[in-house]
Amino acid sequence: MFEKRVKIKKNEELGPGYFRMELDCPEIAAAGAPGQFVMVRVTEALSPLLRRPFSISDVDAGGSIALLIRVVGEGTRILSEKKAGESVDVLGPLGKGFDIGGLSGPALLVGGGIGAAPLIFLARRLAEKGVPGRVLLGGRTAADILCAPVFESLGMEAETATEDGSLGRKGLVTELLAQALTPGASAFTVFSCGPEGMLKAVAGMCRRSGAACQLSLEAAMACGMGACLGCATPRSGGGYLHVCTDGPVVSASLWPAG
């Protein structure tokens, strides 16, 4: 685990409200695994006070890590306005990532909006391991479908669904998932990240079809490293998981699905 001030190499707007920030951070690039996250301090001042969590979206051989950032409030707005050459304080890599140790079949990645972020790094590691896979990306509009060409460049077929029909199928990404999870498809392992409602639907569909499923969860966090116990989410069978240490990636069986 590292805590370090690092240089911003690039900060590009991908589309309205979405940014891709590249940080010069060889330690985290080397130690990080897909699904893990970093806590970024957005300012040296006292407000916004707490670090903000972001999935490691990609790494490169040059020691960079990439974050995909959706602007939703003050902290993400400040980050979106940072320029190459400025620096930010990052803490990571944190949490448990996707388990890709003993995959028996192909991978099926399901992302909703900014939930595509950790799936890119995952696709890269799967490609390196020679695990075949597909990615299903959903969003409200075409602008919310992130980085489909990046998945394709990593050898993954990408299918998209938008609620307004502006790109791909008109509807929800779970409709694409329903098609993919046809009988006999249980050899898939599903990896998913996106809004809570989507994750619940994905978990439920996988449970019914018998497909193994790993989810990347979110929770309000203060520390990101197991110290505050703020990041609780219900655990199947009672009690709570801590998203920053038990997750953010958990087996869907641990999370009470909708």
């Binding site: 407000s47 006070l49 707490l50 929770a219 309000a220 990041c231 609780a232 989410t233 219900p234």
Partner: peptide, 18 residues
């Protein structure tokens, strides 16, 4: 003790509630 249901923390100006 399992603690309270979430959300458990939220940031406030120059501070936080838990």
């Amino acid at each position: 003790s399992p603690g309270n249901p979430p959300p458990r923390v939220v940031e406030t100006p120059c501070g936080m509630l838990n």
